[in-house]
Simulated assay, not measured.
Amino acid sequence: MLRNSRESFGLVSILFHWIIGLIFIGQIVLGYLMVRVSDFTLQFSLYQWHKSFGFLILGLSAFRLLWKVANPRPRDPQSMSPVERVAAHGAHTILYLSLFLVPLTGWAVASSSPLQIPTFMFNLVVIPQLPITISDAAEAFWTASHAWLAYLSAFVAVAHILAALHHHFWQRDAILMRMLSPTAAKSRQEAFKLTGKSS
């Protein structure tokens, strides 16, 4: 099942979710490491990889957004309270915005830096700089914006993961399973119906 249903996400949405999520986590780790290495050659390579994966996230997120518009989101399970629904949709909104704002502010950092170091995306193509002010002050502003947005999105992502685990192990609904397999959520719901634990 490639497309979403009313009960579960389709294979395309699942792949977008996990691929972008894993790259995003890798970017947090890479961003932490690259500013702490002392070897200039290694640091340059890490920066280039960080920027390359940032543009990859930006591109994948654009396609994911188009797919999201064309596919209905599965309905929330009845076990979710109104507060949980608002919190979940708020977290999803923040994460979606972060997938665009964090790479864009990173692009702005590279574009505003007086050093004007080119971005070699996976050593295949040079990414042009944004037409923004080039100065130390501008670079500092975009660097701080990029870092704080990354911290915020990381915090929300951790909360998102914990909420999914809470639903899976405590609420025992299909929230997590529907993002693992198009058929796993249905199987879990049917199993709970048999045991009288379904939401």
Rank of each mutant, 00 (worst) to 15 (best):
I161L: 15
S38M: 15
G31I: 03
L60G: 04
L66N: 04
A91Q: 09
P128R: 09
F44W: 14
A164L: 11
P74N: 04
P103C: 07
G54H: 03
A159D: 05
L165G: 08
R73Q: 10
I25F: 15
A110C: 02
P77A: 10
A140R: 09
W148R: 13
V37P: 11
P118I: 05
F24G: 10
H166A: 13
Q116V: 09
H166E: 13
V156H: 06
L104C: 01
R64T: 00
G106D: 09
F24R: 01
K68R: 15
S111Y: 03
P131D: 10
F155Q: 01
V69E: 09
G31K: 04
Q48V: 04
S112A: 13
W148P: 11
N123W: 14
I94M: 13
L149I: 06
S45D: 15
H89T: 13
N123I: 01
F155I: 12
P74K: 06
T133F: 01
A150V: 02
Q43A: 15
F63G: 07
W142Q: 02
V109A: 12
L115D: 10
A163V: 02
P118H: 11
I161C: 13
S45Q: 14
G26I: 10
G31S: 14
R73F: 13
T41E: 15
F24K: 01
L130D: 00
I161R: 10
L46G: 06
A154P: 01
P131T: 05
Q116L: 11
L33H: 12
A164D: 08
V83M: 14
L65Y: 11
W107I: 01
S61A: 13
L101C: 14
F169G: 03
V156G: 03
W107M: 07
A164V: 14
S153L: 04
D136Q: 11
S98F: 04
K68A: 14
L60Q: 02
V35K: 13
V35F: 12
V29K: 07
D39C: 09
R36T: 14
F100G: 06
L101D: 06
L65P: 05
R75C: 07
A88E: 13
L95H: 07
L97W: 08
Q43Y: 11
F63Q: 02
P118G: 05
Q48G: 10
F100I: 03
F40R: 15
Q129V: 01
V109M: 14
Y151E: 14
V102R: 03
S52A: 08
L115S: 06
S153A: 14
L152P: 10
H167G: 04
F53C: 05
L165E: 08
F40I: 15
S52L: 03
H166Q: 14
G31E: 09
F169N: 03
T93P: 09
W67R: 08
A144V: 04
Y32W: 15
I127H: 00
V29M: 15
L58E: 02
P82V: 06
